[in-house]
Design a protein around this nucleic acid. Sequence first.
DNA 1: TATGAATGAGTATTCATTCAT
DNA 2: CATGAATGAATACTCATTCAT
Lengths: 197, 197, 197, 197
Amino acid sequence: MNDSGEGTAQAARPKRADARRNEAALLDAAAAVFVASGVEAPVRDIAAEAGVGVGTIYRHFPTRADLIVAVYRHQVDACAEAGPALLAAGATPHAALAEWINRFVDFLVTKHGLAAVLQSDNAGFDTLHTYFLDRLVPVCAELLDAAVEAGEVRSDLGALELLRGVGNLCIGAEDPRYDARRLVDVLIAGLRRPPAH
Amino acid sequence: MNDSGEGTAQAARPKRADARRNEAALLDAAAAVFVASGVEAPVRDIAAEAGVGVGTIYRHFPTRADLIVAVYRHQVDACAEAGPALLAAGATPHAALAEWINRFVDFLVTKHGLAAVLQSDNAGFDTLHTYFLDRLVPVCAELLDAAVEAGEVRSDLGALELLRGVGNLCIGAEDPRYDARRLVDVLIAGLRRPPAH
Amino acid sequence: MNDSGEGTAQAARPKRADARRNEAALLDAAAAVFVASGVEAPVRDIAAEAGVGVGTIYRHFPTRADLIVAVYRHQVDACAEAGPALLAAGATPHAALAEWINRFVDFLVTKHGLAAVLQSDNAGFDTLHTYFLDRLVPVCAELLDAAVEAGEVRSDLGALELLRGVGNLCIGAEDPRYDARRLVDVLIAGLRRPPAH
Amino acid sequence: MNDSGEGTAQAARPKRADARRNEAALLDAAAAVFVASGVEAPVRDIAAEAGVGVGTIYRHFPTRADLIVAVYRHQVDACAEAGPALLAAGATPHAALAEWINRFVDFLVTKHGLAAVLQSDNAGFDTLHTYFLDRLVPVCAELLDAAVEAGEVRSDLGALELLRGVGNLCIGAEDPRYDARRLVDVLIAGLRRPPAH
DNA sequence: TATGAATGAGTATTCATTCAT
DNA sequence: CATGAATGAATACTCATTCAT
């Protein structure tokens, strides 16, 4: 009752509020630096952008993967959660899949370097991989399975593979001569089963 | 002959041969190291593999991009040159394009890290980009245009874009859970124009 | 009473008790951490073990030396106080000295890292040195002098020197291949005057 | 014939000479810094003292243990090699042991921090431990065994233990109030077996 | 008075690149 | 021309200590 409650008048832990604010600022700063220099930017740059010492970064996010996950968690979660609704609302499973993938692409395309890191085999990023895959592969699989079941798309492709393909297509999307969205569109179109005869 | 005269012809010739041999050995070594450790392998590793000093590498190939280009030039050229023949021999332009792309993929997936570097925005790799694009984009464009003209594929995609998409799909092809060839197959299938209803 | 008056006596008293309890808890925690990780363990570890913030440690013990002294004061005092009794009860002054040294060794070898820190020339440990020496050197001197006077031991060694030698022999006593007690035994035996021939 | 020869007029590898000179300078600098700041001095300080970049240190001595061993190798070897001669020449095995230990102490006492590091359980110093022990324990054992056999000294102490005790007694020998030599003298005296009856 | 968040100095290590031999 | 030794910038991470709440 008087513990960790936030609604009570007691207001036991003012620090907590500060720290939370600080953490939010950190995430903003990290997001900004990630956009500018990619998710592998030096810790010091992020600290500088946030106007804090490097120790503060490490306090809040012991590993870089923790930081990246924290920065993108909300968007990844939102993407994941949108899946079922799209499936329910979509004209066809394939259309739902396409729309869901579009959202994923919208997310990725604005994250300089994230797509690249997502396929890095660097051990330090395991947590990151795990988070993304745990969160997104099941959703993708659900949509993909539905489309396969409906006979709309070829069945020899896994959800992980598809997601990685899409992720890869988003690499380098900063270049105006390269339209990742269009290429993903082509890829998703290519999933379609050729009409029976 | 075009060298500072050394008096006897006997002294000048062997040197040239040596240098050429040396450069070839360098390329072999680099290729081997690229396979093992990727195209971003430490210069020293390459020098060690070649049995030369690092200075020798820098003398022959001032930038890493120069070295990479030199290592893959033959294969890239061969790929480029195969385009017209495939177009002439293919059942349809789309089939020719697919086959040509397959060859490009075959080349890329065996070059650990090359696909990743091909989309790096690092200034040092400009030469590399330039070479690959100068060499391959025109060929790809020719095949693509033919297919567009034949009404087989959508017309809103550029050759550069397509090549980069394919290149991106080849990133991380070392992972057995990820079949770059299949994904490229899907992509190429997706190029097809939906049958006019 | 000697505190800034808070009006009611009721408010002031419990605080004092709390503070004392707190300090005792701190010492217990520090002792535990010292055993586990040595006397140079991170301040945070000690704070965590005590369940307090690091600030609390610093408030009570501004320097690490202060904390170490506080943790071991009782045992050092007990050791110091045992001296005269041992001298009175011992069969010979040398036996008394040996027994007293044994007690010192028993104390030291169970204090992971303390012996090492006792000879550190780091300025921050001055307080620590001072305390140990002020407390123990006079006692050791008394025992040593008695033994010298009795003609049992050589006279060219000072009490400080002897204590430091013993302390040094206790360094690394954690290693089972190293028996500090035995070496100290040898050292004390070596003090004996060679029998006059 | 023209390979790696140094006596030939060819003088094939001038670099080698430079590097060797450089390495010697490095060792001198390291020795100086070790004296001033102990063997755990920052790599940068050593580099600065030697007037070289840190990379040069790492090139010659990949680990700190390598550097320490290199700095002290000659003296350790000399010490080890002196053992048999001393045994042969000594009045008694115990006297030979005492003299050999004295030489070891002479070596250690001038090496600020070395004694401390010799008993550090830090994994990075394994090579160092190994070198010292491999080199010195057998010699010490030979001398000790001889003395035991001659019935001069107690037999319950191992050579490793003895050496570590001596090493420990040398810690802090910088302090003028502490005479490590005298304490070691006492220790060695203490080894003597009490006369039979 | 207690807390623990924030600070930032300090250190190790790698590797691209230069240049004396 | 070839060599490879030397350089030093770049970066990660820890932990003692301070100070706002």
